[in-house]
Amino acid sequence: MKVTMHVNGRQVSGEAEGRTLLSAFLREELGLTGTHIGCDTSQCGACTVHVDGKQVKSCTMFAAEAEGAEVTTIEGMANADGSLSAIQQAFQDYHGLQCGFCTPGMVMAAAALLEEIPQPTEAQIRHHLDGNICRCTGYHNIVKAIQAASGQPVAVAAE
């Protein structure tokens, strides 16, 4: 079947089977490989995108379910001029990523959190990241990056 949706502000159409996951549609049909697949039990969150402004796991949603939806992926998160958004910049500033594999999902989750709670506490940040697993950072600098992106004071990452 043909599926049409808006991805990162652009209308796109592509072929999908019933079983085609949104993540596969993005990666294989649209070539948007920033959305990653880290598990098959809907736990790791590397595939997190926004559908109609809401954070979802694109590996646990069929492409057909996104028919007509507004989808935002990591590729659509930078500013219009190509510079990093405040959240992306904070991840770099506070070393909130190492291997980078979970990072797209983390950024998408962080963006959804700050939309909902502009100034989250540390506990709220950690709770919100329940569905995003990072194996590299121990989350320390991810938490700091999100605090920083929310405009809250953060201790410097390093001297």
Partner: peptide, 30 residues
């Protein structure tokens, strides 16, 4: 403290691709 030599907390250049979804992992290769 050096600005960007040994001992400086230089921000990572690789982050730019990882933060924008333009990294190239093996599964991204077809």
């Amino acid at each position: 403290m050096p600005k960007d030599g040994i001992g400086a907390s230089v921000k990572r250049r690789e982050d730019l691709r990882f933060l924008t979804g333009t990294g190239r992992y093996t599964d991204d290769i077809n």
